[in-house]
Design a protein around this nucleic acid. Structure first.
Lengths: 117, 117
DNA sequence: TGTGGTTATGCAAAGCTCGACATATCGAAA
DNA sequence: TTTCGATATGTCGAGCTTTGCATAACCACA
């Protein structure tokens, strides 16, 4: 039997909107925080600026929360920074996701590993 | 703040093949077991027969396991039943997924709920 | 031995997501 | 006041997934 690994995807939804926050948007926020701009963040993650921008908008719209502060113009062209609210979300989601990841690994060991050996 | 719910997707992969078994194929096997045929199962799950058939083939090929026994012809046209191996997989995956689901819920309560209130 | 309902499978059409472009706007600094 | 690089946003096409036919093969039973 081939070796298997457990994989998962995690996200949050409202009644109306599926995927208002999840792994992708979490990575995006982290990258924005590290890079200082949406453009640099999208390039770092190798996703299109168009998608990064849309994802961010979707999250902020659905959650009604200002996750980032965006500035246009200026000598640097502009910049995007993560708000304190946004940072709270990053931290909370990081712990959330970490717990789930551990649980997936544990559950795999407990229920699947024996089956596959 | 809108009410949120945590959602997840879970699956197993080999080094070569992504998604050799997961929520969809698990549901399919359960449905086959309940319905007695691949056709009825696919209709019950409201996915195309074409996809159900392909999914099953993909899982069996990648795992090198006979999850079901298929019979063509006969007065009923044919039927598909889940093998004992397949049932083992269903049971194990059910427990696996159940544990993960509980963990997701727990982690949500612990890390996200406060944030959203 | 003909029938019916199922499995088996290829292929084209339909959907959906994401990326690539094309512009427009903005504003601090030169 | 010109410039430069980032944000803002619509649109069309590429790539991948799923559906929808269209057939063929199969076989217990009437």
């Amino acid at each position: 039997m081939k070796k298997l690994r457990a994989r998962f995807k995690l996200w949050l939804s409202t009644k109306d909107v599926e995927g208002v926050f999840g792994d992708g948007k979490w990575r995006l926020l982290k990258s924005i925080d590290a890079e200082g701009s949406l453009k640099a963040a999208s390039e770092s993650l190798r996703i299109s600026y168009r998608k990064a921008w849309g994802d961010l908008k979707k999250a902020e719209d659905a959650l009604s929360i200002a996750l980032v502060e965006k500035q246009r113009g200026g000598n640097m062209g502009g910049r995007t920074t993560v708000t304190s609210q946004g940072k709270k979300w990053v931290k909370a989601y990081t712990r959330f996701r970490g717990d789930v990841e551990k649980a997936v690994e544990k559950a795999y060991e407990k229920h699947i590993k024996e089956l596959v050996k």
